[in-house]
Amino acid sequence: MVHKTIIDELTRSKITKMLGDGRRADGRGMEEQRPVRIETGAIPKASGSARVFLGNTEVVAGVKIQPDRPFPDVGDRGIFICTAEILPLAHPDIETGPPNPAVIELARVVDRGIRESGMIDLSQLVLEKNKSVMGVFADNSVIDVDGNLFDACSYASTAALLTARIPKWEMRGDAPARVEGEEYDAPVTTIPASVTMAKIGDSIVVDPNQDEWSVMDARVTITTNSDGNVCALQKGGSSGFTYDELVRCSELSVSVGSRVREQIRAKGAAVRGDG
């Protein structure tokens, strides 16, 4: 937001001052994520769904799966698309209308983290090569905003995908047809976990809340996979990072990410046949 209020200035000076003493305004440690709560199966009409709370940020994600035409250059893979939207009911500053660059970035970063991790084995979602494949759509709706929508949307889509049941389709003649009553677990290879960190002054904090988000100098979102490797990264905000800071952030993303991953994995284990 270009418009800065006096409150923002006061918030910033308070937050920076506290960070200088090694404290955060909400009492968390610098590397402490807010509590994550995940509920799955909230939307039975979706193939998979999740409602995620990251502190007071709340997101609902739904997965819809249906036959589609493959992308021309990759006819041997299914389609995966992840979107994100901030609903106007989520915050007084959100307006209706076409998505602004920040929302487009949000959707693309969430999509990239899951896509680049290779979470869904798209080669298993082909009905007929170059002709018909299954399309997996994970759509996120942010319904309450308290900062760090990147991680909240990422956890919601990941949990929704992990618990999704894919309806079975097969080719009958020229067209795909639904095999009634049959469905199977999504072919999952790894569980991505994104961790967003904000740089405020000289401090780096994990999982910035809305106050921290509105005053931060820069941020970085790093997604890691189940092997603890980095699979996607996005820097944002109007300042820069040193090499050492980026290394430290990658280490934080592995340690913080592994805890959330276990939480998401437990949700999957309760639902999936492969435990």
């Binding site: 680049e116 603890g228 699979c231 990264l233 996005q234 820069g240 990072f241």
Partner: peptide
């Protein structure tokens, strides 16, 4: 000595990342 743009897609081990 500041990195002001960085993005990544694709899998890297922590050492490869550095």
């Amino acid at each position: 000595d500041r990195i002001t743009l960085i993005q990544l897609d694709g899998v890297l081990t922590p050492d490869e990342y550095k």
